[in-house]
Design a protein around this nucleic acid. Structure first.
Lengths: 244, 244
DNA sequence: TTTTTTGGTTGACGTGGATCAACGGGCATG
DNA sequence: CATGCCCGTTGATCCACGTCAACCAAAAAA
C-alpha cells in the first residue's frame, strides 16, 4: 500500500478550511489550542484506500484536498457506496464503535488528509471547551445525512434520487466557493448508481432525460445545472400521483 | 401532547439495563458518578411522540421500557421509518447537529425513557473518564447501523431485506434476554415496509413465502424463527445469480 | 501514432415489486 | 352481544428499473 506520509505539521489555525471542518465555530483562542490536534498529513493517490474495513481504528481524518468515497461490502461481492466526501469533511467515524473500521475509504482523486489521532482528540476535548461539542455535531450531522440517504433509497424514484444527488453536490460545491451551477463529478456512473441504489444504465438514462428536458447539461463528468428549481420540484413532488 | 413526567430520580448504577445502555463497559466507580446524568423519567403512551422534527434539542433519551420508531417525512407526505429502538438504546442523537430534532420519535407501545439533558452529558463527560468515549461509541454505532440499512435498501431484494430485518430483531431480543426464536413485533407491516423500502403488501407476501418455505411461523405480529440459518443464507447469497 | 482499456450511452426485453382491489379476522367500542 | 375499524392477506395487473447487448468516445498504454 504505497502511501506517502510527511511529517509537516498542519495547524488548524492556519488552515483555510476551518469553516468547513471540525473546528468550525470555535473561537480564535480555542483554535490555537488545536495546533496539537493534527498528528500528520497523509497523501492518498487516486484509487488508493485511506483505510479498509477491518483495519484497526486509530484516527479520524479531515480531508484537506481531494475527495473520497466510502463503501461497505457483503461477502457475496455486492457493495454499496455509503457516501462521497469532500474537503473539510471528516472520515473514519465508523471506526469508533468497534475499534475497527467498518467500511473502505477510497480516494476519488489524488488527495490529502489530516490525520487526527483519536486518543489526542479525546484528550483535547477535555481541555478545549467547544471541541467536544463540535465533534458531537460532526457525528450527529453524519447521522442526519444518513437518514436523508435512507429516505432517498427507501422512498424516492430513480430520477428523484439523481436530482437530489445533483442538488446536494451543487450545495456542497457552493459551500466550498465553487460554482453552484457547474461542476465536475469525480465519481463514475457506477459509483453514483451504487450510492443511489440504481444500476449505472439507469443513472445514465436519467442524466440523458434531464438533459432532454433542459434541466441540466451533461458532458461526461462535467455537469451544468440549468434549471435547479426544476430539479428541486422533481425531488419534492414528481408532478402528481406516482408517490410510491 | 398529554405526556407524563415524574420526578423520580433514576440512578444508572441501580438500573438493570446498564449492559445495553450508555454506561456499558464503565467501571463501578464511574457508574456512581453518573447518578447525576438522568434528569428525569418520562412516560410516553403508544402512538405518542417523544419528540417531533423541528422540536428544539435539549436532551437525549435512553429507553427504559417499551420501544419506539423514528421517521422522517417529506413535504409531499411520503415518510420513511429510519429505525426501530428497543430498551437501552439511545434516541435523539440527530438533534445535536442543528440544535433541532430532524425526525419524529414515536412510541410503538406504552414506554418510558430516561431524559438525559445534553448539557449535563457534556459537562459530566469532562468529569467522568469513560463517559465521553462511551457516548462516542454509541454515536458511531448508530452511523454503522445506518450504513447497514443503506446497504439493505440499496442492494438487497425484498426477501433478503425482510430476512435481514428478522435476524436483526432476533439478535436484539436475545441481547435483552428474550428468546432468539420467538418474539412479538410491535410494529405494523406498513411500518416494516417503510423501514425496508417496500410496500406493506410486499412485506406480507414475503412473510407468507417464508412460512411456506418453512423458515418461520407467522401469526400476526407473533414470529417464530424455525430455520434461522436458512434466513442467514438468504441474506448473504440468495442462491446464485440475481445479484442486482 | 495505433491499440487497448475503461466509462458512458442507448435500445430491446424481462421481471420484481408497486398498484389496485377484494376480502377476512382481531380487537376495541358501544 | 353486535358493530366498526384497523390490519393483514391474497390475487390480478402494470410499470419502473434491471438485465443483456451493442456501440462509441475518451483516456491510457504501447
Amino acid at each position: 500500500m504505497p502511501v506517502t506520509m510527511n511529517g509537516l505539521k498542519t495547524a488548524c489555525s492556519q488552515c483555510n478550511l476551518v469553516e468547513l471542518c471540525l473546528p468550525f465555530g470555535m473561537s480564535d483562542s480555542e483554535l490555537h489550542q488545536l495546533d496539537e490536534l493534527v498528528g500528520a498529513r497523509r497523501k492518498v493517490k487516486r484509487q488508493q484506500s485511506l483505510y479498509r474495513a477491518g483495519d484497526p481504528f486509530e484516527a479520524i481524518y479531515a480531508i484537506r484536498a481531494g475527495s473520497f468515497k466510502t463503501d461497505v461490502l457483503l461477502e457475496d461481492g455486492r457493495d454499496q457506496v455509503t457516501g462521497f466526501q469532500m474537503t473539510g469533511e471528516i472520515l473514519g467515524l465508523d471506526g469508533i464503535s468497534t475499534e475497527n473500521h467498518s467500511c473502505n475509504a477510497i480516494a476519488l482523486e489524488d488527495s490529502e488528509v489530516c490525520v487526527i489521532p483519536y486518543a489526542k482528540l479525546e484528550q483535547l476535548s477535555h481541555e478545549v471547551e467547544g471541541l467536544q461539542h463540535q465533534f458531537h455535531k460532526v457525528m450527529s450531522r453524519e447521522i442526519v445525512r444518513d437518514h436523508g440517504v435512507m429516505m432517498l433509497l427507501g422512498s424516492m424514484r430513480a430520477e428523484e434520487r439523481l436530482a437530489a444527488f445533483l442538488l446536494n453536490m451543487s450545495q456542497r460545491f457552493t459551500a466550498r466557493g465553487f460554482s453552484a451551477a457547474e461542476f465536475h463529478l469525480r465519481m463514475t456512473r457506477e459509483e453514483i448508481g451504487s450510492y443511489l441504489g440504481l444500476k449505472l444504465e439507469t443513472v445514465s438514462r436519467a442524466f440523458s432525460r434531464f438533459q432532454e428536458e433542459g434541466l441540466i447539461a451533461v458532458q461526461q463528468k462535467h455537469i451544468r445545472l440549468i434549471d435547479s428549481s426544476g430539479l428541486r420540484r422533481l425531488v419534492q413532488h414528481q408532478t402528481a400521483s406516482c408517490g410510491r
